[in-house]
Nucleic acid binder design. Structure first.
Lengths: 218, 218
DNA sequence: CAGTATTACATAACGGCGATATGTTTTAAG
DNA sequence: CTTAAAACATATCGCCGTTATGTAATACTG
């Protein structure tokens, strides 16, 4: 399928490899294929955005609920970052706006992935019910998690975070800070974040052994 | 100067207006001008990045130190956002990575603007000395402020934040959350953030009356 | 001053891009 | 079988960044 080829090209060679002629060559067809099936490059980019959010959703729904909702929340953050690092160019298309020259996304395209926030909203509600977070707006908390971690991931993908304040260090600090600012106690937050790190390590080891990674890239 | 024309085109018409032919037309010269002066579009983009960070620095150094360092810190956040909203396309070039198709920035280009973080680091140190922040790494705090607010601004510029959780609301919440997670008490943080909002309002009214805005855009 | 080397500029061309128009082949419906 | 629709291939248009080549202006040097 053309979408699969496009996803592979995007992951392996980056945005500049996504051209009608390159796709035609790769699919053994003509440049018209993109237009008959997607109405142009914009339509194909839209499909890529949907695919990107589907992969994100797959990562987020993969975190299991435990009796430590704050650790679950931290794990959601780790899953978000993990997905972005596994599909960096796809993530750039999802949020980069005009990452591909001149291909502006529709308002509907931009808001399409909003459903993935539901995972975070539900988890925030559980944190409220457990008395770990101040009882405030769960959606607002979700938006704060989203924008803060999105910002860190964006800077990381752009190679703006370097030693000694590399992305790993900033991310761990960011996770704890987010839990604290939502109302959790500092030591409790640090403990839950540490627990989430162990759960994440176990997760990637298990799926790494099964070779289940969604995408690899250089 | 070619850089001024480029900055104007970028601000008024967006990234796709930045082409050698368009610049040649606008400057009444040929396409070679970009190559003799900047060695190509990449060089011109680099100059734009430098200009963008210079404007950011101008905004950041414009916030005055008061006896409420947390309010000063919040005002730095507001200044950062204000600069990004005043120069949205320029901000996209600074951090969008490949906002312009295929023009990858050098490692030196990406790290060039790092000096602007110094304003935040100094302010964080003052927050420590005032006993408002937990005495930890000032640079780490600065990085957290940076990535969190950068993430929010990025989502805002990309029109990802819509009512009822619009950018204004998320930003105010983000500011308070950042101060709280750095160690400030919730009510103290909220009070300083509110104070910073008033100072910001006075600021834009004063400079607005003098017509001193750095750039306007549709 | 003359002579020269460097820089700036204009023109034309190359390859690649998204997009369109047109005609042809394949597919599916009646 | 007939025909309407979908998919495809080819050629072309107007962009793009970039390069090569030749020319005019400038600055340096003896």
């Amino acid at each position: 399928m053309l979408v699969d080829i496009a996803a592979r090209l995007l992951a392996e060679e980056g945005p500049q490899a996504l051209s009608t002629r390159r796709l035609a060559t790769e699919a053994d067809s003509s440049t018209m294929a993109v237009y008959t099936h997607f109405g142009g490059m914009s339509g194909l980019v839209r499909e890529m955005v949907h695919e990107g959010f589907a992969r994100l959703q797959r990562h987020l729904t993969h975190v299991r609920q435990t009796d430590d909702p704050v650790a679950d929340m931290a794990l959601l953050g780790r899953a978000y970052r993990h997905n972005a690092l596994a599909n960096p160019h796809l993530y750039a298309v999802m949020f980069g706006g005009s990452s591909l020259a001149g291909f502006s996304l529709t308002e509907e395209d931009r808001q399409h992935g909003r459903y993935t926030l539901g995972n975070v909203v539900k988890c925030a509600t559980r944190c409220f019910e457990a008395g770990r977070f101040r009882a405030e707006d769960a959606e607002l908390v979700a938006h704060q998690m989203w924008s803060a971690i999105h910002g860190l991931v964006t800077l990381e993908l752009g190679d703006y975070l370097i030693a000694p304040y590399d992305a790993d260090r900033c991310f761990e600090a960011q996770l704890t800070a987010l839990m604290v600012s939502s109302g959790d106690a500092l030591d409790a937050a640090a403990s839950s974040v540490a627990l989430s790190r162990e759960r994440m390590r176990d997760e990637v080891e298990a799926s790494g052994a099964a070779g289940e990674e969604p995408a690899a890239e250089g």
